[in-house]
Amino acid sequence: MRGHLFKLRANPNPHWNGVTDCEVLAVVPEKLLSYTWNSSGDEAGRLITVVTFTLTPTNQGTHLRMEQSGFRSDNEQNYQGAQYGWQKFLAELDRVVAGL
Rank of each mutant, 00 (worst) to 15 (best):
F71D: 01
R65I: 05
Q77Y: 06
A10P: 08
A82S: 10
R2H: 13
A44L: 07
M1N: 01
G18H: 15
Y35D: 14
S40P: 13
Q83R: 14
V50M: 10
R65M: 09
L47R: 03
T62Q: 08
L100V: 01
A26I: 07
G99R: 12
T56Q: 13
R72W: 11
L47V: 04
L100H: 11
T20G: 01
N13H: 13
A10I: 06
G18F: 13
Y79V: 00
R9V: 10
P14N: 09
G99S: 10
F89C: 12
G81R: 02
T49V: 01
Y35F: 15
Q80N: 13
V96H: 09
L8S: 08
Q77I: 10
L33C: 10
L90N: 06
V19K: 04
H4A: 12
V27E: 14
L93A: 13
W16P: 15
Y79N: 06
A82F: 12
E67D: 14
V51Y: 05
L100Y: 06
A44T: 01
F89T: 04
R9T: 02
D94L: 04
V19R: 02
A26G: 08
F6Y: 05
D21T: 04
V28K: 11
S34D: 02
Q60V: 05
W37N: 15
G18D: 13
R2F: 06
V24K: 15
V19C: 13
G3E: 03
T36F: 04
V27A: 02
G81P: 01
L25G: 13
R65N: 12
H63R: 12
L5Q: 08
V97T: 01
V51A: 12
R2W: 06
R2M: 08
T56W: 03
V27S: 14
E76A: 11
W16C: 08
E30T: 05
V28E: 13
N75P: 08
R46Y: 10
R9N: 07
T62I: 03
V24E: 05
L5R: 13
E43H: 03
S40I: 01
Y35P: 09
L93G: 09
A91G: 11
R65G: 03
R46P: 10
R95I: 01
Y35H: 14
T20A: 03
T54P: 10
P29Q: 04
D94M: 14
P57A: 12
L25T: 11
V28Q: 14
N11V: 12
E43V: 00
A26M: 05
V96F: 07
L32K: 12
G41H: 05
R9G: 02
W86V: 01
N78R: 07
T36S: 14
S40H: 13
Y35K: 06
T52G: 11
L47D: 10
A10G: 15
L33A: 15
Y35T: 09
V50I: 13
E23Q: 07
S34F: 05
S69M: 04
C22W: 09
L93V: 06
